[in-house]
Design a protein around this nucleic acid. Sequence first.
DNA 1: GTGGTCTAGACCACC
DNA 2: GTGGTCTAGACCACA
Lengths: 131, 131, 131, 131
Amino acid sequence: MPLSPFIFQLAPSSGVPIYRQLMEQINRMTASQQIKAGDYLPSVRQLATELDVNPMTISKAYGLLEAQGTLKRVRGKGMVVVESTQKQSIEHRLNALNPLVNDLIKQCQQLDIDQDQVLNWLKEQFKKEWI
Amino acid sequence: MPLSPFIFQLAPSSGVPIYRQLMEQINRMTASQQIKAGDYLPSVRQLATELDVNPMTISKAYGLLEAQGTLKRVRGKGMVVVESTQKQSIEHRLNALNPLVNDLIKQCQQLDIDQDQVLNWLKEQFKKEWI
Amino acid sequence: MPLSPFIFQLAPSSGVPIYRQLMEQINRMTASQQIKAGDYLPSVRQLATELDVNPMTISKAYGLLEAQGTLKRVRGKGMVVVESTQKQSIEHRLNALNPLVNDLIKQCQQLDIDQDQVLNWLKEQFKKEWI
Amino acid sequence: MPLSPFIFQLAPSSGVPIYRQLMEQINRMTASQQIKAGDYLPSVRQLATELDVNPMTISKAYGLLEAQGTLKRVRGKGMVVVESTQKQSIEHRLNALNPLVNDLIKQCQQLDIDQDQVLNWLKEQFKKEWI
DNA sequence: GTGGTCTAGACCACC
DNA sequence: GTGGTCTAGACCACA
């Protein structure tokens, strides 16, 4: 029963609701099969403690993922990833980055940064920051 | 001639408050001097109509930018960019992209996409989407 | 125990915006440490009811005091005075009265009242009205 | 025809509407007979130029003072102080300072300044600032 | 319960 | 025409 080897990173002051941040991260991890069918997610209380967040917030995220069909509630055991999830194609996963990249492009233009500058800088940043 | 040649793009469902999106965009445009000292911003009502948003929302953004020292109220004429703003260095502007890039890196890892894949794809996307 | 032992006095017809009156009074009370670091201000809704004012007006004042660095939002608990505030020197606090005193002097001159007359009268008034 | 020997002092950013500041100042000057029955006020245009204010603002103040019975419009000559005004008693004029003094007392209390401190300081300020 | 955001609509002061 | 202030009421995120 893999409890919480998952890396969740929250940005509390980003304006994006915490439950949405959680949902998006879990969705990405199922898309990449870092969480597979049958895996159990950390319990509401455990994750709440770990992230220093109200348990109701975790519960809300789990509830919505259940409604969306990604998770299933198992009485007495917790939330389990449903069997239908499978690793999505690389194209599909890259496309999930589209909103972020469009934002990036828009911000570059507003900051008057050109393509080569930002691409070179991104390469550097990736080398530095990639864990 | 306080027209509105500025391109504001809102993401209403992003969770980021509209007034914040506006503030950030205006801050970026002053950082790149696409809006220069002495320029007039579009009027509250005009921008509200253009973006289909309540005037008070625009007004809140302008008011906070005034409190922050970026804009100044000119009676009967509108909001003008203060004189002290100047174009910021390319390093400074690239650093403004940091939060977005950290997000990008995090999402790639959660989607199990490796560095070369994403960098190549970014190059393509930039060529396609850059206006 | 975020109660409301603070006395706010509004002058609705003074022309000074309500949110500004609130901000000024709160600033004075932190300057004199009648509100100390860690104290909770009355909730938006409570103060709105108490002062018979729209909640958004209170909220605007609190929001600006937060932007100004005097208050901090604590999720689910309310607005708390930040730790950095300290009692300001008597000189500093007296100087805060400058605009009012300049106004007083100007009005005396326009009313053809001389210095001794007004100073004696002020002494009396202070004795009578001081709570 | 005494044109504009009057000293008007405006505080444009005080939040008090300019037309009200004007009205109050003119009322004080009639109360003290610094402006007497039969005196002509400066013309709208002249005062507007002098104070760097929109003529409509002056006009509004004059109009309200006319409605209030203090001034009278004389065709082709301007606004004249009506005959009924007379110098008011010193008590009456001191009472006109009441709102300001109540404000002063309130601010002192909120700033935790005691009576003797403020009275001594006021004496000094009066000596320094009185023109 | 807490604060935050947004809307629709009114009125004010000033150019 | 410009921005500013306020209201009444709705909905959201979080404790």
